[in-house]
Amino acid sequence: MTSVQAPLEKADAFGPLKRFVSRRASWIPVFAALALLILIFIAGQAYFGNFLTPRVISALLLDNAYLFILAVGMTFVILTGGIDLSVGAVMAFTGMFGASLLRDGVPSGIVVPVMLLLGAAFGLAIGVLVQYFDVQPFIASLAAMFAARGLAFMVSLDSIKVETPEILWLQSTRIQGAPGSFYITPTGIIALLVVLVAALVLAYTRFGRTIYAIGGNEQSARLMGLPVVRSKLLAYVVSGVCAGLAGVVFTAYTGASYPLNGMGTELDTIAAVVIGGTLLLGGSGFVVGSMIGVFVYGTIKTAISFMGADQSWTRISVGLLLLLFVVVQRIIVARSDRR
């Protein structure tokens, strides 16, 4: 029997760098995003002088906690090669529904699980349309977005104030070393926990690996006998649950629910995920990258408010960054196709 050793020798011959590239190529976009983030930090600090303070950094996590959670769910869906446009609207609807229940005196121990279940139901509905009826993910999640937005307004046309102490506690509690130093709120802890759990699930469970396999080549995944249908449904459910959880966090953050919450948030989320290095074609990307993408988004927003410039610059900058990353991705894909 002949023995194939060439690739191993090659790796040795070109040293650790080559070896790193052959093993960890998919992390490169994440590092690119990280480099971008650091660049923005440095530029901000150089320009404003008081940019990199514990207060600003802590606020990044606080202000964008909901976005971290949404981005995690979106990462699952995009990794399978799909997309979920409903997250902003589902977040608004679960927030509204939850707030109305709380107003009616339902204990938060029931309300929060109900919100998560509602989100899961939306995710499941999208997944069923995509998986069983061959509806494009774009259209299926669009319908869910319409439905959720309409339902949010059906709950109430006006904002509902939330006075439940447990919910507000999520936001108001600040765990802080010393006055003026870094702090974190329970919402921030939830966001980081979600990122951590999702990262572990994607890296260390068969479900997670199946998600990557589907995104890499769905046909192959089927032929390998992996549970494609179940995993894809579950990816949308994860995104739905994340949207529900974001509903909880966002309600806590604003102390009220408003049916117009999260307008356009789905676009911010997608942008953050893509900037964080996840390929829109699926199969490549990490929740850690998405987290960095959200940080980039949040930092740009903060920088723009520091400048006192119009917040419309946020969307413009994020749009341009998205363009840059998509074109770069396109070039990378085109190059690997040629090979």
Partner: peptide, 20 residues
């Protein structure tokens, strides 16, 4: 080849049969 090129060699061999 019906494998997933976005994953590692070992993973492609073991997908669905990973040691847990």
């Amino acid at each position: 080849v019906n494998l997933c090129t976005n994953l590692s060699v070992g993973e492609n061999v073991m997908l669905g049969h990973e040691v847990r």
